[in-house]
């Protein structure tokens, strides 16, 4: 990794490691719970892509907002939702972050800026732009982040959302997580231009950068610049993160027929957590024992979260139609 100009201190660098491990271990346990039948619905994991959520969200304030995708556990955790609230939501429990109304695909914690993960590809881009409009209208220095995958890039929402954010100089960071496959359709078969940053620059005259999405420091640096630009009134940015999904599109789905074992192995060797761990030690920011201690702490947190989810009550059936409307009208 070429990160000679790192401005982060050891504590911050270890916090990035901690967050990535927290996301990984939480999802590994959730996948196991899914196999045991404890997660009644779909479960799309983020394993292999943790550097992006960790690197981006480390630059955000609690009142900045994030709009996420169906693969959103990592974004929720990185934005500060507790593993307990995420696990309980996937278990369908009343203590979940959406009180059992959402599951894996609809995580909400607006009080800390998680404005929702979505089962539909594209709306996160538009809603992210809209939050930017709101902040500009209300003269707030909050910023908005829209996460989306390569699958959204050929969708009309990408063009419409980026165009509006650009023409109105909205404080938005568009984060493309290009994991090479939209469900099982290869990005190379879905577009003539896989360089998403180039699209942003050429089509919308937007500041854009392409980074190794498995390099948490590269993601962090790109996000730091983009957030600073947005907060200072400099308009939107796009970060094109090239990454790879290590597990199937969703838990329990057959994972063959569209990608090779060799390709999966090659990306496994570029695991973002292992790479950051090696760099931390090599650069003298940590010793192996420090990383082991983080691992042990995370394991304990995640064990507690799963136990909390298991022990929590299901929602009261009589509340199934609550919250459809707000006040007035």
């Amino acid at each position: 990794m070429a990160n000679e100009d790192i401005a982060l201190n050891s504590e911050q660098l270890l916090a990035l490691y901690h967050m990535m491990v927290l996301i990984r271990r939480t999802e590994e346990q959730l996948a196991r719970a899914h196999q045991m039948g404890l997660v009644p619905g779909p479960c799309h994991t983020y394993v292999g892509e943790e550097a992006i959520a960790a690197g981006v969200c480390a630059n955000l304030r609690e009142d900045d907002v994030v709009f996420s995708t169906h693969r959103g556990h990592g974004h929720a955790l990185a934005k500060g939702v507790s593993p307990r609230a995420v696990a309980a939501e996937l278990f369908g429990k009343a203590t979940g972050c959406s009180q059992g109304r959402g599951g894996s695909m609809h995580l909400f914690a607006p009080e800390i800026g998680l404005m929702g993960t979505s089962g539909i590809v594209g709306p996160s881009i538009l809603q992210g732009a809209g939050a930017g409009y709101s902040f500009k209208l209300l003269a707030s220095d909050q910023v908005s982040v829209a996460f989306f995958g390569d699958g959204a890039v050929s969708n009309g929402a990408f063009h419409e959302g980026l165009n509006m954010a650009a023409i109105w100089d909205l404080p938005v960071i568009f984060v493309c997580e290009d994991n090479m496959y939209a469900t099982e359709v290869a990005f190379r078969d879905a577009t003539r231009v896989q360089d998403v940053a180039q699209r942003a620059r050429v089509s919308y005259d937007m500041a854009a950068v392409r980074v190794d999405g498995n390099d948490v420091l590269a993601v962090h640096r790109a996000a730091e610049e983009a957030v600073a630009r947005a907060r200072a009134g400099g308009g939107p940015s796009l970060i094109d993160c090239k990454t790879y999904r290590a597990r199937p599109h969703a838990e329990g789905m057959r994972d063959g027929g569209y990608r090779s074992a060799e390709e999966m192995q090659a990306w496994k060797e570029r695991d973002p957590i292992a790479a950051h761990a090696a760099w931390l030690i090599e650069a003298g920011h940590a010793e192996a024992a420090d990383l082991d201690a983080i691992e042990a702490q995370v394991n304990s947190t995640v064990d507690d979260a799963i136990e909390f989810a298991r022990a929590s009550p299901f929602p009261d059936p009589s509340t199934a139609a609550d919250f459809i409307f707000g006040a007035g009208g």
């Binding site: 709009f67 538009l126 809209g130 009309g156 929402a157």
Partner: peptide
Amino acid sequence: LRDTPIVERGFVGMCAGAAMTGA
């Protein structure tokens, strides 16, 4: 009073995000 490009899906989706965040 924001004149928009002719992108109904886009500006409706954008307005959703604005409504969710205080506008």
